[in-house]
């Protein structure tokens, strides 16, 4: 236990020394002045390397630079207060309260620990939370996957995620993706990222990932795609539309997709964006004879083919 305490003391002292300095400190300066570096040169060296790693794993960025370019090239170290300190600007009591609610949404879920450690840091700002009244507020991020931590770590480092993904025909396909987005919709988690094979952004539903996700360090520069929008169900991203008749008072699920509605009396005619022919065919068939598709021809033909198979299979 005492040695553990000594190590912790040394890490704190190192942090203080590197934060307080206005210039880079060389290793020899650190060994000479920071308490806790003892033993042979080799031992000190090893201690210091491990300490740097430990501080980095706590999210502390250590700058490495030249101590004094005029006299020698020895590397020096410092921690910039701008990168060490929290800079959220002025926080109001209301904002503090909103952040606490945001953290509470993770109760019992994947990021519960991260959310609470963030709130612990924020509480040091010394602004008390001002209880706000959101009636009946109790949001929960349920169904959270343990992969969220892995994924968000990879987003931060622009690293590759490697995983097996279940294709529409139930084949397990290996994917390598640099993730750029994480979202939750209708109870499902999605990760979007640049798929190495096609060099385009693809979105994956996490419950379709087979087995564990592994992370591979990306050593090359990565540019975040700027034209990517999360809401891809936005009709403006659809290239084609279908014209479909829907019986009045029926077809609620397919009506929810419609971008326009024309009243035809007993029926309505709706225009629906096509993301995939297969998806829309299933939607149309689900609604039975309450729905009738006019165009495009390939969609209509696919519906007819499925109906023919249904008749044959069930005779």
């Amino acid at each position: 236990m005492p040695t553990v305490s000594r190590k912790i003391e040394r890490l704190i002292n190192l942090t203080i020394a590197l934060l307080a300095t206005k210039r880079y400190l060389t290793k020899s300066e650190i060994f000479r002045t920071v308490e806790g570096y003892e033993g042979s040169a080799e031992t000190k060296e090893r201690m210091f390397e491990r300490d740097k790693e430990d501080l980095r794993s706590l999210g502390i960025t250590i700058d490495v630079g030249s101590f004094d370019p005029l006299f020698n090239d020895e590397a020096g170290y410092r921690i910039r207060s701008e990168s060490y300190q929290l800079d959220l600007g002025d926080i109001t009591p209301t904002e503090m309260s909103l952040l606490s609610l945001a953290a509470d949404a993770w109760q019992g879920a994947a990021f519960a620990e991260q959310a609470q450690s963030a709130i612990l840091k924020l509480s040091s700002i010394g602004v008390p939370a001002d209880p706000i009244d959101i009636p009946g507020f109790s949001p929960k991020l349920s169904n959270s996957s343990k992969d969220l931590e892995t994924i968000s770590g990879a987003i931060g480092g622009s690293d590759y995620l490697i995983f097996d993904y279940l294709s529409p025909s139930l084949l397990s396909e290996r994917r390598e993706v640099i993730p750029i987005a994480l979202s939750n919709k209708s109870g499902f988690w999605y990760v979007s990222g640049v798929d190495k094979a096609v060099q385009e952004v693809r979105t994956f539903r996490l419950d379709r990932v087979q087995g564990a996700i592994t992370v591979l360090k990306n050593k090359e520069d990565f540019e975040f795609p700027t034209d990517f929008e999360l809401d891809q169900t936005d009709a403006s991203s659809a290239i084609r539309f279908a014209i479909i008749d829907v019986r009045k008072g029926k077809g609620h699920a397919i009506r929810a997709l419609a971008t326009s509605v024309t009243d035809l009396g007993e029926w309505d005619q709706i225009k629906v964006p096509i993301y995939t022919i297969e998806y829309l065919t299933a939607q149309i068939l689900w609604h039975g004879d309450d729905v009738f598709v006019h165009e495009p021809v390939d969609l209509r033909e696919n519906v007819v083919q499925q109906l023919e198979a249904l008749v044959v299979n069930h005779e």
Binding site: G59, I60, S83, Y84, Q85, L86, D87, L99, A102, A103, W106, F111, Q114, A115, S117, A118, K121, L122, S124, I125, E149, S152, G153, I155, G156, L182
Partner: peptide
């Protein structure tokens, strides 16, 4: 206070 980590930020 220390700044928040990437994952803490994502969580919030």
């Amino acid at each position: 206070p220390r700044t928040i980590t990437f994952q803490e930020g994502v969580a919030l």
